[in-house]
Every structure is written in structure tokens, then in C-alpha cells.
Design a protein around this nucleic acid. Structure first.
Lengths: 221, 221
DNA sequence: ACCTGAACACCGTTCAAGT
DNA sequence: ACCTGAACACCGTTCAAGT
């Protein structure tokens, strides 16, 4: 239960940063106006000077997530290679923050750093030949899907100590294996992989691949 | 503010159903133990007889969503045609309930109806030649992505009266058009489509297509 | 088996006031 | 400009008790 230095000067940035750190440690439910105030040895109402309401605090967290994206350079390779690289860059920035990743979906176009990412994806899709409408729909969907990749990863959510995690995984496996093999043969066959993702990197690679290949696929339709 | 008949007999099913209806009308934040109790003219604590805690109530909502999926018959057409049909069926069941759709992602394997859907998707992927591990990862991801398609649809969330919706859309468009065309040329070019989805059906079709094509793509890698 | 009453430990937020 | 104090209207949940 490490807390921020007792009397660091407050500001949007400092507060958003420590809110993000708190979410990473204890989950998004732990991020509370009152808790955050307490961690900074200040009254809850003090935060309302820096944020209009809690939603603005969450905006601040999302902004930091977007700011963590380091976009790869644009190359002269085919558009889908570049698209893959951008999505991977986005994924890498989000992966360390599974608890808060859901915040970004609705906020891409509301933060400057988010707009930069969106602009890049839109540009690549335009280069691939999609219309402005298609481009808009696909770009938003791609970014959201990368987020989904993270939040849908099999296995219990982090922010648990590893002992509790292991127990949860074993329980999950047991439940799935106990299902009727007549009704759910494939669930039973895939039980272990459904309960826990053994190789995260290959899971994420496959996911990004699926998306990029999907875009290629609908382009030639 | 229509409420359930004053003294219908309480039960898990009745409560979950009216919780879902409430969420559809006023959003998931409106679904509260106390509010639900009030709508049924009963004490909040009465609900704890039927549900261990609020999470179980949400499980009940998710269960109803899965139960609404009408799976298409298995055909002798190629696996990807069938996969497309299953995803569409899933999508159709979820679309009427955008506010609650986020509940299903973590609950597919916890409800009987959810398992039936998962089993079907797993089966089709196995038929396509994927390993049990790949099948597990992809199946979960596909279902989550369909959910994402709904929650990432451009435009303000429903549960607003149409006047407020229109105003929100106009505001969004204005903000995007006001951006620097040097920094964000493609965002500005796609502004209208980013603010509002003009054709929902084609948006959803393209999304499901992208996923199925994506699966085809990574199969031949 | 099914529901109530009272209480507890939390939330976000407003408003007036202090320095 | 930045923060406090007191108060309000909410939450989920426990526990003992009623029928």
C-alpha cells in the first residue's frame, strides 16, 4: 500500500498518474475520489479544483495511456505492414494497463494523443483505398479490437497475488473439465487454453494478425 | 418511468429480466439493488434472498442475453460460411442491448447458454483445422469482438431521447471539423463518419466480415 | 421459504467558507 | 489560486428478526 509522497504539489497530471498507478495495483474499482485524496493527504473536495468530476479524472487516465504510444515511423513498405506495426505499438502501450484499458475506447477522439494515433490509422486505411466512411468505421473498430484483445485474454484478471491467481486458474480448469463431454466436447477439449493463456505473446500476435488480415480481406471484396 | 407490476412474485428470472429492461431503458448505471427493489415494491434486502450479491444479478442479465441467441443450423457449406452465420446470430441477439453487452465478455463460460454458443464456435474452428489452443483463443476473441463491434459503434450511446442524441452528434461533428487540418487531415476528412454511424447494418456486416476473413487469413499462415 | 428494519461503511458531489 | 468542513443523496451489504 505504497502511497504518493505526502505533500507533492497537486495537479491534473500528478493526480491522473497516481490514479493510473492505483488502478494498475488494485484495479479500477479502487480508483475513487476519496481514496485518491487520502493517498495525497488531502480532502476529497480538493480534487474538484483539478477535475470537474470523476469522469474528467478518468479522461486524464486515458490521456496518459494514449501518450504512452510510440508510433513507428512511416515506411515505404506496403500499407498492411505499417498497419500491423501501428497496432502493435498501440497494443504494447496498453498491455501494461489491463485494468484501465476499457477507458480508451470511448475517448480516442477526445484526447490529443489519442487523435494522433487515430490519424495514423485513418491515413493507412485511406492509403489502402478505403472510402472516408469505411476508413472511419474500420479505424475505430481496429483500435477497440486491440483493447478487446487485452480484456478478453483468457485467465483471471491481474491485481491478484500469484497464489490466488493460480488457485483461480485451477478452479476454472476443473469446472470446464467437469462439463458434459457429450454436450460440450470442444469446450472440454480446449478447457486448459480457455482457462489460461499459456503464451501471451503468441496470443497477441495472432490477434493483431487476425485484424490486419481481416482488413486485407474486406478490401478485396 | 414504467415499473414492473407492483407485486409480481419475485424470483431470479423475474428480477434479472426487469434488471435487463431497466438497463435497456436507462443504462447499466441505473441498475442498482435499491432501484430494482423499489420498482418491485420491496426492500433492498429482499433481493439478497435471490442473489448472493450484485455480481450474481449481473450474471443473471448476461445469462438472459446468451439465452436470446438463436443458433443457425449446421450446414454442409464451408466452415467460414457457418462461422459467419453464428457470429451474425450472436450479434443479432446482442444488438438490442448495447448497455449490457459488456457483461457477456467475462461470462461466456459461466452460463449454460453461453457455453452452447462457445461450443459451436469452437467446433467450427476445429473443423477449420485449428489446434485446441488456437481454437480456444480465437473463439473467445471472436465473441468478444462482436461485442466490441456494438460498443465501439460511432455515435453517442442510446438511452438518450433523440433530441439530445442529435445535439450530441452535431457537437461531436463540430469538434472534429474544428481540428487542425494540417495535423489531422484524415480525422477531419472522416469527421462525419467518426461522429455518427449513418448505416448501422453495413457497419455491422463489414465488422463480422472482417473477423471471418481474419480467421481465414491466419489459417493459411 | 421469503421478506423486513436498522445499521455500517462506503460512494460522488454541492455549497459556502477559509487562506 | 487552491483547499477545507459540513452536509446531501446515494450506494452495496450484514445481521438479527419477523412470518
Amino acid at each position: 500500500m505504497k502511497r504518493a509522497p505526502a505533500r507533492e504539489r497537486l495537479s491534473r497530471d500528478v493526480l491522473a498518474a497516481s490514479a493510473l498507478a492505483l488502478a494498475d495495483r488494485e484495479g479500477l474499482e479502487a480508483v475513487t475520489i476519496r481514496r485518491l485524496a487520502q493517498d495525497h493527504a488531502v480532502t476529497p473536495m480538493a480534487l474538484y479544483w483539478h477535475f470537474k468530476d470523476k469522469d474528467e479524472l478518468l479522461d486524464g487516465i486515458a490521456e496518459r495511456l494514449f501518450a504512452g504510444v510510440v508510433l513507428p515511423d512511416i515506411t515505404d513498405r506496403p500499407w498492411d505492414t505499417d498497419l500491423h506495426a501501428v497496432l502493435e505499438a498501440f497494443l504494447s502501450a496498453m498491455r501494461p494497463h489491463p485494468a484501465t484499458v476499457g477507458l480508451v475506447v470511448t475517448r480516442v477522439l477526445q484526447s490529443d494523443a489519442g487523435l494522433v494515433v487515430a490519424e495514423r490509422v485513418l491515413g493507412l486505411l485511406r492509403a489502402a483505398g478505403f472510402s472516408t466512411e469505411q476508413t472511419a468505421e474500420i479505424a475505430g473498430y481496429l483500435l477497440s479490437s486491440v483493447v478487446t484483445l487485452i480484456s478478453a485474454e483468457p485467465g483471471p484478471e491481474p491485481a491478484l497475488d500469484s497464489a490466488a491467481r493460480d488457485a483461480a486458474i485451477r478452479g476454472k480448469k476443473a469446472t470446464l473439465h467437469a462439463l458434459s463431454p457429450e454436450r460440450f466436447p470442444n469446450v472440454v477439449a480446449s478447457a486448459d487454453a480457455l482457462a489460461y493463456c499459456a503464451n501471451e505473446d503468441s496470443y497477441f500476435n495472432r490477434g493483431v494478425d487476425l485484424l490486419v488480415q481481416g482488413v486485407r480481406g474486406i478490401r478485396s471484396t
